[in-house]
C-alpha cells in the first residue's frame, strides 16, 4: 500500500552498515576523495562562518565575556545555572515553544487544507495560489511594520474599521493577553502560502495508481486523504515541518518589529531575550548561554521529528 515503507523498510540497517563495509582502507580513502571535493566549498564556508563562530559562542558562554577585555572571567557553568533561576528565561522558553507549536500546526494545517482545496490546475486556482503565496516574498521586518500600523487601535486600518462599526478599540499589540496571538496570526499569515506550495508539490507527486487502487477498495474522499495522501507525502511533510519548526524557534524579526518582546514580556522569545542580553545589556556570556540552550532544543526537536517521520525510510 505505501510505496516507501513496502520497498524500504529494511534499508536503515543496510544503510547503517554501508560506511563500515568490508573494503580495504586505502582504497576507501581514495574513493572518498570525490565526495569530499564536491562537498568542500559548502563545507568550508559552513565551518568558517557557522561552525567555528558557534563554538566561539560556546566559549563565551562559559565566561563573563566582555568584548575586547584583556582577560575574561571564567564562570564555568554559572551562566547556565543562572538561566535555571531566571524567570525571564522560563517565560521566554514558554513563549518560544508556544509560538512555534501553534504557528507550525496552523501553518501546516491551513496550508494542507488550501493545497487540497486548490489542487486542480484551473487558472482560477493558480491565481488563488499565487495570492496566498505572495506574503512569503516580503521581508518579515517590513510586513511586521505594516501589520503594526494596520492593527493600531486608534489610527490603524483595523482600528478604523472597528470604530466605524462602533466597536471599542482593540489593543492587539498592547494587551498582554492578545499580543502573542496577534504575532502568531501574522506569522501564519506570512508562511501559510509557502507551506501550501510545498505540500501541493508533495500531493501532486503521489501516483494516481495509489488513488485508483484505494478507490477500487471503496475508499471515500476522507479515507483517501488519511490513508493515501498523508502517508505518501511523509517526506515532504517532514521537510516542511522541520524547516518551519526551526524557523519558528528562531523567530526574531517579526517579534522585534511588532512588539520587541512586550508587553510585559508576553511575546519575549529566546532570541529576543538573547538579543537584549547581548546587545542592550552587553552580557555576551549570558546571551551565548541562552543561544546554546536554544540550539540544543532545536536539535532535540529536529531529531524527534526525524524519528517521528522515520526519516531513514525516505532515503
Amino acid at each position: 500500500m505505501l510505496r516507501q515503507v513496502s520497498t524500504r523498510t529494511t534499508s536503515p540497517a543496510v544503510r547503517g552498515s554501508r560506511p563500515g563495509g568490508g573494503r580495504a582502507a586505502p582504497r576507501r580513502a581514495f574513493r572518498g576523495l570525490p565526495g569530499w571535493l564536491f562537498a568542500a566549498p559548502s563545507i568550508i564556508i559552513l565551518i568558517v562562518f557557522i561552525v567555528y563562530p558557534i563554538t566561539q559562542s560556546l566559549w563565551y558562554s562559559l565566561h563573563d565575556w566582555r568584548i575586547g577585555a584583556e582577560s575574561q572571567i571564567w564562570l564555568g557553568l554559572d551562566n547556565y545555572q543562572r538561566l535555571l533561576g531566571d524567570e525571564l528565561f522560563w517565560n521566554a522558553l514558554r513563549v518560544t515553544l508556544l509560538f512555534s507549536l501553534v504557528s507550525v500546526v496552523l501553518q501546516i494545517g491551513i496550508g494542507y487544507w488550501a493545497a487540497t482545496a486548490l489542487m486542480r490546475e484551473t487558472w482560477f486556482n493558480r491565481v488563488f495560489r499565487s495570492i496566498f503565496f505572495f506574503p512569503t516574498i516580503v521581508a518579515l521586518a517590513t510586513i511586521g511594520l505594516v501589520w503594526r500600523f494596520l492593527l493600531d487601535a486608534r489610527i490603524g486600518f483595523v482600528g478604523g474599521v472597528v470604530q466605524l462599526f462602533g466597536g471599542d478599540p482593540v489593543e492587539f499589540l498592547q494587551d498582554p493577553s492578545l499580543a502573542l496571538s496577534t504575532v502568531i496570526f501574522v506569522s501564519v499569515w506570512k508562511t501559510v502560502g509557502y507551506a501550501m506550495v510545498i505540500l501541493l508539490a508533495g500531493i501532486k507527486g503521489v501516483p494516481d495508481s495509489l488513488y485508483e487502487a484505494a478507490r477500487l477498495d471503496g475508499a471515500n474522499a476522507r479515507q483517501l486523504n488519511w490513508h493515501v495522501t498523508l502517508p505518501s507525502i511523509r517526506p515532504t511533510l517532514l521537510f516542511v515541518t522541520m524547516i518551519l519548526t526551526i524557523n519558528s524557534l528562531q523567530v526574531f524579526d517579526l517579534v522585534y518589529v511588532m512588539t520587541n518582546g512586550g508587553p510585559l514580556f508576553a511575546t519575549d522569545t529566546l532570541v529576543t531575550m538573547m538579543y537584549r542580553e547581548g546587545f542592550t545589556n552587553f552580557n555576551l556570556g549570558y546571551a551565548s548561554a541562552i543561544a546554546w540552550v536554544l540550539f540544543v532544543i532545536i536539535m532535540l526537536l529536529s531529531a524527534l521529528q526525524l524519528r517521528l517521520f522515520r526519516y531513514q525510510d525516505v532515503d
Binding site: F49, M274, L294
Partner: peptide, 8 residues
C-alpha cells in the same frame, strides 16, 4: 541550519 544568526 539550527543556529540562529544572532549567536554568530
Amino acid at each position: 541550519l539550527m543556529v540562529p544568526f544572532q549567536v554568530t
